[in-house]
Write a protein that binds this DNA or RNA. Structure first.
Length: 427
RNA sequence: GGAGAGAUAGCGAAGUGGUCAUAACGGGGCUGACUCGAAAUCAGUUUGUGCUAACGCACACGAGGGUUCGAAUCCCUCUCUCUCCGCCA
């Protein structure tokens, strides 16, 4: 959620910045400003009457004690009460409209982002060299099938298209990756959080998925009660709500958290042909980094998260590039996002394996997550950041493709050997 | 799943229709006094949100609704917590 005071002060700037994200907010901003004036008028009107009600109300016990007639006061009170009720109803309606509009506005992109979409993404740095082969390399679907790492067919049998089964060494490789990620984060002092995999609606609102992007997540409805829950689309949705409606102290920050969860996505669109196999499914495993910081510390935290993600990819021996996303390619909640992309040989080009974002105070405003300042005692919204560290669904395909040998076996990266107990995966 | 009890400030807790929500009382935190320092003692201070240029004003007693001139207090619905029983990895 954006700061309504900022919208009021500089509406044109807000419109211009949102335009960089491809959002034409002219109409909404106009409506918000209009409703805000209306809202404040109503507040003043109802508060004046309430103050009078309170003053009058205090006279009643006094009059009764003195044995005076209170019927005139009762009549007056009744009138005032009717008036406030009427104005309060209008106010509630206006509040609902403003909230709905405010929740619909995406975050402002940082000033230094280029406008527009993917075509304006800027690679910032490259690490290593693309892998070359002196034989015809197989794609990961064939490799994983031949080596018995992934059972695509039976995954589909169990749950339909978009689901696969890790088995044997495949399952162990997956698990080894997750352990490597988590152990690295623990060594960096992050707290491991294992959250529920079903969340209530409010979590989606805070993270920024709801109300606009509700179609992207699975909804669970239980016929015996009428509560809905939503399959967790990313641990970010859980972690962003961890301190919802709480006031933290300065000493609490930064909170450095890491979660492992499966992530469930409807991915309602059609798959692109170059995303076969396990690159895009309805369920995948991800280790997610998350930070709550003081506002002035979030840039620093962002750099830390990017570096951590890069180091994980480096540790696996991948060539990668780090890309600064253009405004429109950042998701709605985020002020800035860097992607780390690796090369999957069969897919020609780079694929995102990590996405690190700074939401600034956007999520904190939606979830009322604040920090109390030590000196002034004032409360302020915290900043939230998240980054994948990492998702396995593209790492594992890339790993088997890049590390394949001519005989169809796959070399295990050094950092994973202690988890897997072998240095080569063979048939 | 069944039965019962509860939800008030960071914590414990009083308050059963107006004058104890400027939230008693207790304890905790912070500041000051005393002290070489500390403990003890004494004094002061300590919720959030909205509106306002400001003084201030309004709102919030788990959430939402209702009754009433007026609700922490009465009624309804929901959520959560605790105790006992049942079931259970």
């Amino acid at each position: 959620m954006l700061d309504i005071r900022y919208i009021k002060e500089k509406p044109d700037e807000v419109i211009a910045r949102l335009a960089k994200k491809g959002k034409d907010a002219k109409e909404e901003i106009g409506q918000i400003l209009e409703l805000d004036v209306k809202r404040r008028d109503l507040i003043r009107a109802t508060e004046d009457i309430k103050a009078e009600q309170n003053r009058t109300n205090k006279l009643i016990p006094q009059y009764k004690k003195e044995g005076k007639d209170v019927s005139a006061i009762f009549a007056q009170m009744k009138e005032l009460s009717a008036k406030t009720k009427e104005i309060d109803e209008q106010l509630k309606e206006v509040d609902t409209q403003i909230t709905s509009l405010m929740l619909g506005l995406p975050n402002l992109p940082d000033e230094d982002l280029l406008p527009g979409g993917k075509e304006n993404n800027q690679p910032l740095r490259y690490f290593g060299e693309p892998k070359t082969f002196d034989f015809e390399p197989k794609n990961h679907v064939d490799l994983c099938t031949d080596l018995g790492l992934i059972d695509y067919d039976r995954g589909t049998k169990l749950s339909g298209s978009g689901f696969w089964i890790y088995r044997g060494m495949g399952a162990r490789l997956e698990w080894a990756l997750l352990n490597y990620f988590i152990d690295t984060h623990l060594a960096d002092g992050y707290e491991l959080i294992l959250p529920p995999h079903m969340l209530e609606y409010e979590c989606g609102v805070t993270a920024g998925q709801f109300p606009k992007f509700a179609d992207e997540v699975y909804k669970i409805e239980n016929p015996t009660d009428n509560r809905s829950r939503y399959m967790l689309p990313t641990a970010e949705a859980a972690l962003a709500s961890l301190y919802r409606n709480e006031i933290l102290t300065e000493a609490d920050l930064p909170k450095k958290l890491v979660s492992y969860t499966p992530c469930f996505r409807r991915e309602a669109g059609s798959y692109r042909s170059d995303e076969r196999g396990m690159v895009r499914g309805h369920q995948f495993n991800k280790v997610e980094m998350f930070q709550y910081t003081l506002p002035e510390k979030s840039d620093e935290a962002f750099d830390e998260l990017v570096m951590k993600a890069e180091n994980l990819v480096k540790g696996l021996g991948f060539h990668f590039r780090t890309v600064k996303l253009a405004a429109e390619d950042c998701s709605a909640s985020m002020a800035r996002t860097y992607d780390i992309e690796i090369n999957i040989p069969s897919m020609n080009g780079y694929k995102e394996v990590s996405s690190v974002s700074n939401a600034r105070d956007y999520q904190a405003r939606r979830g009322m997550i604040r920090v109390k300042r030590e000196g002034s005692g004032k409360t302020e919204f915290v900043h939230t950041l998240n980054g994948s560290g990492l998702a396995t669904s593209r790492i594992l395909p890339a790993l088997v493709e890049q590390n394949q040998l001519a005989d169809g076996s796959v070399v295990v990266p050094e950092v994973l050997r202690k988890y897997l107990g072998t240095d080569v995966i063979r048939k």
